[in-house]
Design a protein around this nucleic acid. Structure first.
Lengths: 206, 206
DNA sequence: TGACAATGTTACCGATCGGTACGTATACGA
DNA sequence: TCGTATACGTACCGATCGGTAACATTGTCA
């Protein structure tokens, strides 16, 4: 059996190498808080208490390490999303509002740094960058789901509403790290409510 | 041929250096398209056809050059904003919708890279970074104006509406560079309309 | 013509960047 | 007990990072 999975260190063998996991954990922390470009591999290995060759045995490059960090981030994102969905079965409006309430709350926490995947897109405009690919896939799927939920709500223009909700979400990510507590992101759920109700009262157009 | 187009650099000296203007122009282009951290000073001076000492005679550091780039960006931003405002005197709703229509249109252009100031905030989370200070000031002022316009419209919750519009705007900046043409940013003006109308029909709360 | 300011030229700095060649320690099965 | 595979460390690579010293050249105006 192939002993080392270079991308996902936790896959395959029963006991995963300890170094890779430590590296990924530290990378997640530093990349998210300070940005991917701002953090060098030296700082990662130093903080993780490992050495550079250990990093490059588990990850083919810094870019791929960043992509691995974002894959983990993506998993955590969908876990939070599903939590709001399952909390309100059959009620897409409540599902979205619940999710947005959580987003709004997190944006008010000190040191909030937005969405790691959104930030990665800003940091890496190159279309084919590994980190960007992970982020784009996440956003495409989120857009798809929001539009589907808007349709299930019976919105007059479901695609418009779904996209509007996505705009509010992305706006909250950015405003949260820009303004800190007391910023516009605080009212993201309330604005979503207003937008949803307006869309439900509006007949189809276009 | 005395080029007296003085915006920012070397404001004291009466005589306008040509190198500084070339550098600032190139920096604007490269910083915006590829990100500030992604561009080195060597690439800037090479593209501008000047030398590194020329850069450091006009700008004390790369960080300050980035701040100068953003100050120019800030000026262009408010020029566009005022254009929408003066096009619809006394009609804040039309002013905002016009501005948002312009934003939505620009986000659909190929190679769109969002708002330079928003991107700088993502690239530099440090609270006291020169580039971030310029961006934060711009966003604070934008928030203030949007809230004032929401109040002038007679919204039930003017602060909520103003903040909601800011969320839509920031979301459009990000989605524009994330999805490209056909992305959610296309419908930013339409969603703003829906949100505004919903807010005008909603009495005060809180 | 002379003076001065702006720019260019060349060469350099220490630090850090992402990445690697190669030797060593340790655990395990035969 | 030995061989082997695996995980880790030491030391190093060339390139690039932001930034500077010292000096030559140019254009402008008095």
């Amino acid at each position: 059996m192939p002993v080392t999975n270079k991308i996902d260190p936790a896959a395959g063998t029963g006991h995963e190498p300890r170094a890779a996991e430590k590296i990924l954990k530290v990378a997640r922390d530093l990349f998210y808080r300070q940005g991917i470009r701002a953090i060098g591999v030296d700082e990662i290995v130093r903080t993780a208490g490992v050495t550079k060759p250990s990093l490059y045995r588990s990850f083919p490059s810094k870019d791929e390490l960043a992509a691995s960090y974002l894959r983990r981030y993506d998993g955590e994102f969908w876990a939070r999303f599903e939590e709001s969905v399952t909390a309100h079965p059959g009620d897409p409006r409540a599902q979205i509002v619940a999710f947005l309430a959580g987003v709004g709350k997190r944006t008010q926490r000190p040191g909030y740094r937005g969405c790691g995947m959104t930030n990665a897109v800003v940091e890496y405009p190159e279309r084919d960058h590994p980190a960007r690919l992970v982020s784009e896939e996440n956003k495409r799927e989120l857009r798809r789901r929001l539009r589907a939920m808007a349709k299930a709500m019976g919105a007059g223009e479901p695609d418009t509403l779904g996209d509007g909700l996505l705009l509010l979400i992305e706006g909250a990510y950015i405003s949260g790290q820009l303004f800190g507590a007391g910023g516009p992101a605080r009212s993201v759920a309330r604005n979503a409510e207003l937008l949803i109700d307006a869309s439900l009262a509006t007949p189809g157009r276009a």
